[in-house]
Structures are given as C-alpha cells and as structure tokens.
C-alpha cells in the first residue's frame, strides 16, 4: 500500500507550491503514471480520495494520465511487441523504454492566485 505514502508526497509537494505562490485554492492537479512506474492508478486514486481530506487538496480534482510502456530498439527504432523478449533481434542490442513509461510525475497544478 505504498500508494498512500505517494499521495502524501504529492499533497506535500502541491501544498509547498501553493504556499510559495500564495494560492488561495488548488483546483486541479495532473499526474502521469507510467505502466511500469509500480503504481496502480485505481489504488492511487482511492488513496488520494481518502488522504486529501483535511488538506489543501480536499477539493482538488486529480487527473491521472496513463503512459503505456513502449519498448523499441535504440538503433533501428523497431518496436518490441508486448510480451516479447526486450531486445532487438536484428541489431542484437537491448531494447529501450520510451520516456515516462516507468515514471510517476506531477505534471501540472492549477491554482487560484491573488
């Protein structure tokens, strides 16, 4: 259940950003979660809905963007089909994951500022 500690990190970060800009409210946060980020989006949403009570994010909508894991050959660019061995047959080198596929990022905060 590390989703709760991740939500805690998220809310703390949002509160810090809001304080720095003297925001009176935070309307929306956009978070992207890679398929291989090790976070279950549904659990993360549930954890957010539970944990945000009493915080600055109490009324803040969270938009989750899912980033699929896309592997390809860094040399010839050939995509590796899902479930296949993560290497390029032709080039004989390891495949590379497209950016975002294993990351969990706070993208944007929409806040109300004076």
């Amino acid at each position: 259940m590390h989703e709760y500690s991740l939500v805690q990190s998220l809310v703390t970060r949002v509160e810090a950003e809001a304080a720095a800009r003297k925001a009176t409210a935070v309307h929306r946060v956009v978070v992207s979660i890679g398929e291989l980020a090790g976070v279950d989006p549904e659990l993360f949403q549930t954890a957010y809905d539970t944990f945000r009570a009493g915080t600055l994010c109490e009324h803040t909508v969270m938009e989750l963007r899912r980033v699929p894991a896309r592997w390809s050959c860094p040399r010839c660019g050939r995509g590796i089909p899902r479930g296949e061995v993560l290497a390029c047959d032709a080039c004989q080198i390891p495949a590379r994951l497209a950016p975002g596929g294993d990351e969990m990022l706070l993208e944007t905060i929409e806040m109300e500022v004076p």
Binding site: S9, R13, E17, R21, M104, L105, T108, E110, E112, P114
Partner: peptide
C-alpha cells in the same frame, strides 16, 4: 489579481511542475 481589469479577483493559473512525485525521496 485579475489581469484583465485589475479588479482584485483571483485568477486561475496552471503551474507546470513536471517533477517526480518521489523527488523528495
């Protein structure tokens, strides 16, 4: 402040962060 007329209302701004949620860790 509202940038259109300076009336004193708040405005909603998007702040791009693009930072790992585990940046602190």
């Amino acid at each position: 402040m509202c940038t259109t007329c300076g009336c004193g209302d708040t405005s909603i701004v998007p702040v791009d962060v693009h930072e790992k949620i585990l940046a602190g860790n």
